[in-house]
Simulated assay, not measured.
Amino acid sequence: MASHAPRTSESTQQLREDLNQLTQTIEELVNATADDSRSNIKELRERAEKRLKDTRERLETRGERIYDEARDSVTQQADACDRYVHDNPWTSIGIGAGVGVVIGMLIGRR
């Protein structure tokens, strides 16, 4: 799990840079509309559209990668839990009973 931290930090930094670039381009586009130079507006609009498209593609790719990593992690944890229950059935029954008692007490207080 510790190996995910540097990648997550790196992805977060890249996302910030992407969003900053997109924000700058959109601000330039808004500022350009103040003067009536049509060629300037068209150029900035094209740049904004390209950056928006690039940022969206990067976000989709990162989202898919994060989803895959989370799914794999949850699957590994579920498998580990399943192995533990099979290796220690009586301990698992005791833990389940204890959790059931606590939940029952909490529900009974209402």
Rank of each mutant, 00 (worst) to 15 (best):
E69A: 12
Q24T: 05
D68V: 05
L106S: 02
T12W: 14
N88D: 03
A2K: 11
R38M: 11
E57N: 10
Q21N: 14
D79Y: 09
L15Y: 13
N31V: 02
A48P: 00
N31R: 15
T8S: 13
V85I: 15
V85S: 05
D35M: 07
T33Q: 11
K50P: 00
R7K: 14
L44S: 01
G96P: 01
I95Q: 05
R56P: 02
D68H: 06
V101A: 09
I95R: 06
I41E: 06
N88R: 03
G94S: 07
E49G: 08
D68A: 12
L106P: 01
T55K: 03
G108H: 08
G104S: 12
G98C: 06
V101W: 02
P6A: 01
G108I: 02
N40P: 01
H4L: 12
E49F: 08
S92A: 15
V101Q: 02
A70L: 09
K42V: 15
V30K: 05
L59C: 10
V30Q: 03
P6E: 06
T8A: 10
T23E: 14
L106V: 10
A97E: 07
H4E: 12
T55R: 00
E43I: 06
T55S: 08
N88L: 01
E60V: 09
P89H: 00
L44M: 02
S9D: 14
E17K: 14
R110N: 09
E69Q: 12
Q76C: 04
W90N: 10
N31M: 08
D72C: 03
D18E: 13
Q77F: 06
V101H: 04
A2P: 07
G108S: 15
Y84Q: 07
T23Y: 08
